[in-house]
Simulated scan of single mutants.
Amino acid sequence: MARYKNEIALKKIGEKLKNERLKAALEIEDLAAMTGFTYNTILNIETGLETYLSYFIDVCFSLGIHPKEIMDVTLDVKPRFSLPASRLEKSRLTNRINALIKSDYFNKERSAREVTQKLTIDYNSDFESKNVSVILIRFVKANILKITKVGNRNLYLIK
């Protein structure tokens, strides 16, 4: 699998760093001496080749510039890929269960089935009990809910 790099952003940031270096009347060798990095490392950053974030930060500091100033470039800000519908639904489900926890719904023991029914009524959505169970277990692991086993059913209660 090839390593991913955002070439457009790296080039814009590199150009901005180079412009700042030139404004400061510094040579690449000067930055190399100030950072302890090689000439090629500085050149790679300025030409938009991949670099470590720590290198970028130290180059900015050597130029007397906060990294956020260099990062202020015009870019098309959007995710590389759209969030899959299944992942989006799980995120919504987690947030909705979290809202139930905050609303004192779990002051009484609740089964995954009860929670599923409540969510289906409240949000007019079709949730599967197994998906609700997985998220409830995450809240148990996070010490937000506690679990009690009654037969083959799990009951969840606020801690």
Rank of each mutant, 00 (worst) to 15 (best):
K130A: 15
I42E: 02
T41E: 05
E15A: 09
I121T: 13
E15T: 10
K12Q: 11
K11I: 10
N131R: 11
L10I: 05
L83V: 07
K118R: 15
T35C: 05
S103A: 08
L17Q: 03
P79C: 01
L63Y: 00
I45T: 04
T47Q: 09
M34E: 09
S133G: 07
L100G: 01
K68N: 08
D76M: 05
K78Q: 09
K68D: 12
Y123S: 07
L43F: 13
S125F: 07
T94P: 01
L63H: 01
S54K: 04
G64I: 02
K23T: 08
E46Y: 00
L93V: 04
T74W: 06
L17H: 00
F106S: 01
E89I: 12
N124P: 10
D104R: 15
V115F: 02
N19L: 09
A85Q: 13
K12I: 06
K118P: 04
T94F: 13
T120A: 12
K118Y: 07
F106P: 00
L75G: 05
L100Q: 01
N19W: 14
K18F: 14
Y52N: 10
S54D: 05
S86F: 14
E128W: 15
R96E: 05
S129A: 07
N19H: 10
D72L: 15
R87N: 13
I45V: 09
N40F: 10
V59L: 06
L75H: 08
K12P: 04
P84H: 03
N124Y: 11
L93M: 12
L75R: 06
E50R: 11
R80F: 10
N124G: 10
E29S: 13
S129K: 14
R96W: 05
S62M: 02
